[in-house]
Design a protein around this nucleic acid. Structure first.
Lengths: 226, 226
DNA sequence: ACGCCGTCTTGATGCATATCAAGGGCAACG
DNA sequence: CGTTGCCCTTGATATGCATCAAGACGGCGT
């Protein structure tokens, strides 16, 4: 459980808030509400009118789209410290384009649009931060479209693993993923079965080794070459 | 050929410039350069450092990505009056993520970053316009990802046609496309063969009728239902 | 420890779309 | 007026991934 003094710190270290003057920060933070979301609960439905954006303080949140037939596509997985739906602040009739569901028990901070926009209006630097933020997000989306159209499932999986490699305490490379595999599969736009088969293939080829929800990288160089 | 007095008008009516004070507009416009691009010429290569963005004044420009094997994906087709690469203004080390190629003989306006950013820094309203602009673009990208992952080729084609319906002088609905079909196919992320077959299928079903580079909508209601 | 349930794997089959190959229309050009 | 080249179409075939259908594994409560 987060201390009452804990969550403003999470907000403070978010890069959209990092450089604010103390009283500007204070004015926005006053209106922020902490929301506890149990694992599996959908706390934002696509199509709802939006009057706030969110910062994830603890846990993990998936953003997804649904087809008419119920098919789900996980657009993004939001880790603690990251935000989502900021882009809606600047839309004419803001409506959430995606649904947000907690994957693990989570704590999210709800930042209402009005005070945040008011703060932006009087802080040029924060405006530019926000522009840079949206711009970076656009860039990520372009890469996503590139991956979907020019790469196959195997390449997408490899790129995903490489994007998550970190170094283990013992010095071995590990791709750390805290999410269930069907969520990862949807994030990569493939079926769980395909995900499973590809993991098996890469394992048989000696490039990786599954380890619970993580993947040990056995041959980083070869993985990068593919 | 555009008059020397013509191109500032195009710039002026672009929504990022529409509400500027005359002297602010003037200061940016002074630095804008007109570039003539013959059909087929690629005037921006992905990977190049970027120090400007572009507004298309005449003709038509495609933005595309290339795979290692040479496969091309047309991300977007820019019509006169529209701009592209504005998001790069706010990146740390701006590099074009896509290539830009004229489809028809075109005239593009090159708007250098530095004076434009300087203008933004002293115009709060323009900043918010830009935020709204990027935000809208993000939204479009989300729809694009949705289309790629949750819809099949036929649905994407139908949605594309519907997005282009306009009314003809004689009152019949027409989807107007000025681009070669292989470009359209790539924009819709399918092969030209698939595009051709789908057009044939919709024609056989009596929903549309091809007419040169346009498509006459024979049964709008049925098209919308699919 | 047992059985239950949800998640993950594995195999068999099917389908949408890509790929390969060949012909047809049309405009530019000699 | 034929030729050339380019797009577009059409058909035959290939393939990657989805779908369907069973198991296997693993956590969890009783």
């Amino acid at each position: 459980m987060l201390m009452r003094t804990g969550w403003p710190a999470v907000l403070r270290t978010h890069h959209l808030f990092l450089t604010l003057e103390p009283e500007q920060f204070e004015r926005v933070a006053r209106e922020v509400r902490l929301v506890r979301v149990p694992a599996g609960e959908c706390f934002v439905q696509a199509g709802e009118p939006a009057d706030a954006f969110f910062v994830v303080a603890e846990g993990s949140v998936k953003l997804s789209l649904f087809a008419a037939n119920g098919d789900e596509k996980v657009l993004d997985i939001i880790a603690p410290g990251q935000s989502f739906a900021e882009a809606l602040l600047f839309m004419q009739a803001p409506v959430f384009p995606v649904s947000a569901t907690a994957i693990a028990d989570s704590i999210v901070l709800r930042v209402p649009s009005v005070p945040f926009c008011a703060m932006l209006a009087e802080n040029r630097a924060a405006c530019f931060k926000m522009l840079a933020h949206l711009s970076a997000r656009l860039h990520v989306q372009v890469r996503e479209i590139e991956a979907l159209t020019l790469e196959n499932a195997r390449q997408r999986l490899i790129r995903f693993l490489l994007a998550r490699v970190g170094t283990d305490c013992k010095g071995t490379s590990i791709a750390h993923t805290g999410e269930p595999r069907n969520v990862l599969a949807s994030h990569l736009s493939m079926q769980p079965e395909t995900f499973s088969r590809l993991i098996k293939a890469l394992t048989d080829e000696g490039m990786i080794r599954p380890d619970g929800r993580d993947f040990v990288i056995e041959d980083l160089a070869r993985l990068q070459r593919a």
